[in-house]
Structure formats: structure tokens, C-alpha cells
Design a protein around this nucleic acid. Structure first.
Lengths: 299, 299
DNA sequence: AGAGGGGCATAGGGCCAGGCTATGTCCTCA
DNA sequence: TGAGGACATAGCCTGGCCCTATGCCCCTCT
């Protein structure tokens, strides 16, 4: 589903937010470091693109119109996601002046790090972070070797030689399209039912696959999957097009569940997978690592 | 906090997602309707901007590198928010061939409509929607007059002459910065405590203000606010900079709560505010209105 | 009443990002 | 060894965006 050409660019959205916040095109222009005419033209271009006036101009400043306010809120979501991306990108760049090095498993890096990085930046703006990704075993060895100040791993145990704390819990969920009969199901699926159902899954060897096999072992293990796909995205797409029940990480589908593009089926089996922060045993995190750790702690 | 110039544009992010999905720069270029060299150059530019290789090129196609996969997930959030904006913009444009007209209160339009519109588009791509915003009273009159097929209002009752169903529940929350003492509070605030605390609030006359007054009436009503601000954004900013406890709509702060840039304080008072879909009594929604209604129903 | 200032719009000119076509290089497979 | 798929390079062009300068409007202060 390609984005229509009617969507303003990030710069324009950011400008719109600044105008809404500051109450004046000129001030917004100054804050973003462009000239007032440039900002004015850009807003006007955006209004032409959308086909709806967004600002009420007056000699005393500019305020969003009613529809403008709505667009501003929508734009805010885009810009906030872009800020998360920005924070992430910044952490991926290797920089000599960097102070805090973190190595995280893919799930943590993909779904949780951006928010944490943003929060950290707000608390201590001068801390720069280097983010590396690795599988759980490599995370452990990086932290042990002192390559990283803090690690994040998935799995039930803390690797030997490390101390750690659970910071969040991922959980596998079974999701279906809203049109699927299970979408209206109230009574939880039993382990036996789940084990007997051909599911759409990640390929063997993936972390999610392991958790599922372990959870269903008491019921004779899962039956042959209906389909095996290589990425969470492919799984989501399969679920939405009605390919049948899909089992994947909850973190990958929060958005789809919130908007009900996908529906979670209640399940009677524990599919939780704790996410841990780890550090060398005996070396309690200090400084920026400690701050970050505090931000990630489960509420 | 201006976005750094290192953030790729929406078009580039979309291209990256397409490459990751299709496994080839050329195919992604074709899907987005640009030439292969253009796509290639754009990806390369993005890698230069970020400072990290994103794709593993091979003579048989391109796959994201490890860090590429992480960036892809981050980019997906941005593009999905942009798609929600796109769907919203599309619904704001008046179009002659439009089939379904919806009028919603500001809260619903801002925070819930985009997801619903996306979901509707996926279920029935040919339905085009016109979205108008109004306060709850005007929503009722528009729906009664037949100007709109479906309305969404906030408030405890269904307006006279209309039938309706609760589709979601907004709720006021008290939020503080993570550094605030209340952030670690476990025992819920009592109504009396809340009534005695000077809060940061929206201006008088706002919907949230009404709900709060009503909920705190048994405790003698809320004390004089510490600060009155004109927008949810201003409230959030105030909360983050530690201006004290802020009371606002839960829907406005889901993101901040999830990433712990803000923390919700448990409260012992019911601050719920139901959101209803409404239609003319006796005229059960049919066609696209019925589909949309089904998508919005609370899980 | 007039001057000044804040705020937005218009005009004219310049720059560069990104697009296109054509072509090159590399690998794989028949 | 030749064909085909996939990405990179070269050269050129267009248009979007930005800047400075200026105009118009309204409010406020003197």
C-alpha cells in the first residue's frame, strides 16, 4: 500500500507542529532555523496538498483551525515516530565521544530501545549512546568482555557471570483477522487446542518458535505449521489477509491490536518471555547506564 | 526538540520498507513507480546520512543487514503513522463520490479515527469516508439532520432522538514526570487527596475539566489549579518538565506512558468517560457505516 | 493622528536533491 | 559462453525549497 503523494514531508509536519505550539508562523520558522517566508510558503503548500485550510491567520499570529487541530494530532504521531527513529539512528552511529554502549537482542532493539532512548535523551540530553544488536548469547559475551556497559537479552535465565533484572516481558500472542471466527471467541484456547491447530509461525530456530514449542510440550508439541514465514511483517500480513491464526510476539502487534486490524485470541497457556537487562556480576551499573536502567524498569 | 537533519524523508523510508519486503531494490522501485537507479541512489543516500550500511547487496537481490532490520522496524512505525495521517487527510477532503459521512468529537477524531479509517480501508478499500469534527451537541444535530451516517460523541448519555453504543472508554489520568515522587507511588490517590492537590489542567469549560469536577464533587470539588493550559500538548510538556501532577485524557498520553516519559499515578476515583457511536433512532446503520461500527466496537 | 512593530504574503533569483535514460559491471545459470 | 537479473555509474534536467527584499494589515503606544 504505497503512501499517497498527498502526505506532507516530515519537515512540513514538524513545521506545522511548531506553529501550533508557538502560535505564530514566524516564531516556528525561527525555531526551525528557516526564514519566515519559507515557512509561510511551506504551510500554504501543505494546505494546497491536503485541500483544507489548516491555520487561521490573524495579525496577531496563527492558530490551527478545527480540522487543523485534528491534522496536528495526526502529524504529531508521525513526528514522534520520526524522533524515535532519529534517536535510534543516532545510537547506531559509532561516535568517539560516546559514553554509554548498549548491546541488545533484536526484539529489544526493534521495539523497546527507541522509546527508552528518547526518554533517556529527555532526562540527560548530553548522554550519547551506542547501540549494537546481537543474539542473546553474543549479548552476554559482549557484556562479559566489557565491550558494552549494559545488555538486554530474552530468555528465562540470566546468563552465567552476569547479574540482571527483568525489565519487561514479551509474550507470544495468537492473532487473527477481525473476520476470523476466533476473533469473537471468549473462552480461552486450551493448550491442547493450540497444539492441534496448524498455525502460521516464524521459521524453526527462531526465539518465538522455541517458546511456543516449550509451552506446548506438555500437550505433545505443536502440530505441523500451516505456513512458515521469515519476518514479523510477513506474519502480520498473513494474519490480516486471513491466512489463519498467527502466533508471534506481542510487541510486534501492539499497534494492530489497538486499532483492531488484528484481534488477539485468549489463550490458556503461558507464552511469556521475560526481557532482562544484564551487567557483569558485581559491577552494578553506574552513571548513564544506571539512568537508562531506571527508565526501563517495569512499572 | 527539532528533528535532526539526519532523518530520512518519508519517501526514503517507504522505499526501504519496500526493499525489505520485496527483497530487491529494482522491484521496490517498480512498486513505487520510480526508476531503479533512482531507488538505488536514494538508498545509498540514506546509508550515507545514517552512516551505517542498511542493505546487503548481492547479484540475486538485496536484504537488510542486521542493523538494517532494526532501522526497518523503526521506519515502519514512522510510515504507519504517516499512513494513518494519509487516511485521515483523505477523509477530510470533501469528495463528491464519497459514500460514508462521519462526524466525530475532537477526541475521537484525533486519537481513534485514524486507526479505524485504516482498518476500514483494509476491509473495504473502495469505501471513501468524509470526516467532520464537531462538539458533542453538534454531532447529535448533524446525525439527526441526516448530514452524517454515523456520529461519535463523548459523554455519559446518548443524546435524545439517537440510538447508540459505547465503542470505547476514554479515561482521565493523573500523570507526572518519572522523577516526581508520585511516580513511585503504589497506594492510589484518594478523591480527597486529588481534590486538595493543585493540578495542571485544561481551561474551564473543556470536557476533561467537566469530568474532573463531577468526579471530585463529593470531595468538595477540585482546588484551584496550579496552571491552566490550552492544549493537551502543552499539558504533556508541562508534565515532562516537572510542573507537577497533570490530569488529562488517557488517549493523549498512551505513547508517553508506554515509553515511561510520563508515569500514571494510581487514583481511587472513577474518571471514565464513555465514547459512543450514535445514529438516528430506528435507523440501524447499514452498509459501510455498519462495517465501520463493527471495527470500532470495544473488544 | 501618526509612528512603530509584529505578523503574514508576494516577488525574484539561486541552488541542489532527486529523477530519468543509457550504459557498465558482476554474478548465476543454462 | 551467452543470456538475464540485479545493482552502480554517468550525464543531464527539472522543480521544490530557500533566501532577501518588500508590501500590506492591524494593533498599540505616544
Amino acid at each position: 500500500m504505497p503512501l499517497s503523494p498527498r502526505v506532507p514531508e516530515l519537515g512540513a509536519l514538524e513545521l506545522l507542529l511548531a506553529v501550533a505550539r508557538l502560535g505564530s508562523v514566524g516564531r516556528a520558522a525561527a525555531e526551525l532555523g528557516v526564514s519566515q517566508p519559507a515557512a509561510s510558503a511551506r504551510i500554504k503548500g501543505m494546505e494546497r496538498q491536503i485541500g483544507v485550510p489548516l491555520l487561521e491567520r490573524s495579525p496577531r499570529g496563527s492558530r490551527p483551525t478545527e480540522t487543523g487541530r485534528v491534522v496536528v494530532e495526526w502529524a504529531r504521531n508521525v513526528v514522534e515516530a520520526a524522533q524515535a527513529l532519529d534517536a535510534g539512528i543516532d545510537a547506531l552511529r559509532e561516535r568517539r565521544d560516546a559514553r554509554l554502549t548498549v548491546v541488545a537482542s533484536l526484539t529489544v532493539a526493534e521495539y523497546l530501545m527507541p522509546g527508552w532512548l528518547l526518554a533517556l535523551h529527555q532526562v540527560s540530553p548530553d548522554t550519547s549512546v551506542i547501540l549494537r544488536t546481537a543474539n542473546s548469547a553474543d549479548v552476554a559475551s559482549h557484556v562479559l568482555a566489557g565491550d558494552a556497559d549494559l545488555g538486554f537479552v530474552e530468555g528465562p535465565t540470566t546468563p552465567p557471570g552476569l547479574a540482571g533484572a527483568v525489565v519487561a516481558a514479551d509474550r507470544l500472542v495468537v492473532v487473527v483477522a477481525p473476520s476470523h471466527p476466533w476473533a469473537r471467541r471468549r473462552t480461552p484456547l486450551t493448550g491442547a487446542e493450540l497444539a492441534a491447530t496448524p498455525l502460521v509461525l516464524r521459521e524453526p530456530g527462531s526465539g518465538t518458535r522455541e517458546v511456543l514449542e516449550q509451552a506446548l510440550a506438555p500437550y505433545g508439541g505443536a502440530t505441523t505449521p500451516r505456513l512458515e514465514l521469515a519476518s514479523s511483517t510477513a506474519l502480520k500480513a498473513a494474519a490480516m489477509t486471513g491466512a489463519g491464526p498467527v502466533c508471534l510476539s506481542e510487541l510486534a502487534v501492539t499497534e494492530e491490536l489497538a486499532t483492531r486490524r488484528l484481534v488477539a485470541v485468549p489463550v490458556d497457556v503461558d507464552l511469556a518471555r521475560p526481557l532482562r537487562a544484564v551487567w557483569p556480576a558485581g559491577h552494578r551499573p553506574a552513571g548513564p547506564a544506571r539512568v537508562l536502567l531506571g527508565l526501563t524498569r517495569k512499572q
